[in-house]
Each structure stands twice: as C-alpha cells, then as structure tokens.
Amino acid sequence: MHEEIIISGFGGQGALFAGQLLAYAGMEEGKHVTWIPSYGPEMRGGTAHCTVVISDDPVGSPLVRHPSAVIALNLPSLDKYEGLVKPRGLLIYNSSLIQRPVYRTDLRVIPVPANDISVEETARVSENGMGDARLANVVTLGTLVQATGIVRLETVEAALRAHLPQRHLRWLEPNLAALRRGALVVAERVVAY
C-alpha cells in the first residue's frame, strides 16, 4: 500500500489540519507517513495545500507530482490538481463551492457538499442556531477515508479526539459527526468511473 494524497483549499479551510489527521491515523495504524505543507506567502488568502504519503514501506519523496488522491476544497484547487491526479485516481471536490463539472473521465470523482454538511452539523450545537463551513475539511476527509480505506474511520476519530486543539474542544462532537457524514456520502452515491 502506497498512497499519495494532496489536500488543497483556501487558507483557513483546514486543508493542512485534515492532512495531519490523516497522517496521525496512518501512523497509529503502523504505516510509514509523511506530511508536508505548502508554506509561504500563498498561505494567506490564496490556496494552501499539503501532501500526505502513507505507505507500507519507508517513504522516499514526501513530494509527489501525480497524487493518487486529491481533495479540492475550492475551485482554484480543482483547477490546479484535476490534471495531476494519477489515471484512475480519486478526486474529491467540495461541490458547495465548485459548480463546474470535472473534465477528466479517467478518475473516480466524488462531489461532496462539504460546506452544506458542515453548516448543518455546526448549527446543531451553536448558540444561535447558525452553522458555518469550518468543518468542510473533516467532511471531505471522511469521504476520502471511506472511499479508499487507507485507514479506518475509527482511527481518524481517535486522531480527532487526541489532536483537536483544546480551545476547539466544544467542536469535537460536530467534527466526529462531520467525519461520519462525509463517509456516508460514499455509500449514498452511485460512484462511477
């Protein structure tokens, strides 16, 4: 098993944190893992991405040209990575924010209304009943894990419990719910190549 995943979105959408959760989960399951962020001036306002490699073997390059799976949380990310996914790879995109169709026909494509799901799950616990889109990253991570089986969903849940920053602890349950909702997307959809 050797998976190379890029998670990409606007700075603030949590692409890097979603990647860290995945790396933690991989490590907990005894895999070799690397996580490397884009870092630099592009992180404020522009897109930020990270590359996660999870493998049965020691990881050579932590950077990849053609990832086996991509999560695109916004349109610039889809524009950037659609053409780079390996043939027959997985492309998950945030259909709440991305309206255009995917052009590649040789990929497994899963649109996920990640912002909408996040709004629903956060609204349940917010004081004023208003939700927000901050869990879109975790929603799509749930989809990725369910669709690929790279790690078990429970391991990601454990990683969330262990690594969600203390100040966000009241968001733990919505995060867990968002993760499961993202996983359900895979079951609910007829996904075709």
Binding site: H32, V33, T34, I36, P62
Partner: peptide, 10 residues
C-alpha cells in the same frame, strides 16, 4: 533545508 524543517514524520 526547508523541506526537513517543515515536514512532519513519526
């Protein structure tokens, strides 16, 4: 280099 500084590994 920047890669070893920025990357995460077990």
């Amino acid at each position: 280099d920047g890669m070893i500084g920025q990357m995460m590994e077990p």
